[in-house]
Simulated assay, not measured.
Amino acid sequence: MSELTTVARPYAKAAFEYAVEKSAIDQWADMLHFAGEVAKHEKLQALFTSNLGASQKADALIKICGEQLDTHGQNLIKVMAENERLPALPAVAELYAELRHEYAKEVEADVKSAVALSEDEQSKLSAALEKRLARKVKLKCSVDPSLISGTLVQVGDLVIDSSVKGQLGRMNQTLQS
């Protein structure tokens, strides 16, 4: 996957810089997300690695995406096809989303809790994370009963584990060492 990320980074950066210049950040995010999801399909991945010409590969993807891609989005697909980089399109969409969040000074926090968090708990957690990270935080909450109690918060590389399961695991490691 790291190879695809390396290949995708210049395309994501160029698309993002163009989107910022044209004040179309959200529009490009939607286009790239849609095209990236379409490109993940196994039949298209097989098409991308086939012996067809670059224009045929690009035309097939553009036709499938239809009106979801504007002229500039179609041009990106054509350039990527010419450089045999279409398999990296999902990674381009992911990297673009990261650049967008960085630009907006916002992060997405994955929050797992033993029970569903109330609106009040979510707003308090969001406020605490925003203060700690100095960024706007968007919570993505899910329930994981195996945590027993508490929460597990992941923001990028930062992990805050206040679950009973995590505390028991740390206690077990301490006792064994």
Rank of each mutant, 00 (worst) to 15 (best):
K105L: 14
Y11E: 03
L86A: 02
T5I: 13
S149Q: 14
S177L: 01
P87G: 08
R135F: 10
V20A: 13
L69R: 04
A12H: 06
K63H: 06
T49F: 11
P145M: 13
N83L: 07
L158C: 06
F16C: 03
V111Y: 00
V79N: 03
A54G: 08
A81Q: 06
V155I: 06
L47V: 11
A97K: 08
A116M: 13
M1K: 10
G53M: 09
L4I: 13
L86Y: 01
I77T: 01
Q45S: 01
H41Q: 07
D26N: 15
S123T: 11
F48S: 11
M31P: 04
V20E: 14
T49M: 01
W28A: 01
R100V: 12
A109S: 11
D144L: 02
Q45G: 06
D144F: 08
A88M: 03
A109P: 07
S55W: 06
L125F: 02
H33P: 14
L52Y: 13
Y11S: 03
Q56H: 04
L89F: 09
W28F: 08
S126N: 11
P10M: 15
V111P: 04
A19I: 06
E130Q: 07
L44G: 05
A81M: 08
E67Y: 05
S163T: 13
Q74G: 08
E3Y: 05
A116G: 15
S55E: 11
I62Q: 07
C65H: 07
K165Q: 10
L69M: 03
K63V: 10
E37M: 09
E121V: 08
E121W: 06
L4N: 04
S23V: 11
V38W: 14
K40I: 02
T71G: 04
S23M: 08
N75Y: 01
E130D: 04
L44R: 09
D120P: 09
L117N: 03
A24F: 10
N51P: 13
A19D: 06
K138D: 15
A88S: 01
K112I: 07
C141W: 11
H41W: 14
P87K: 01
Y11L: 01
E42V: 07
S126F: 08
I25D: 08
Q122V: 01
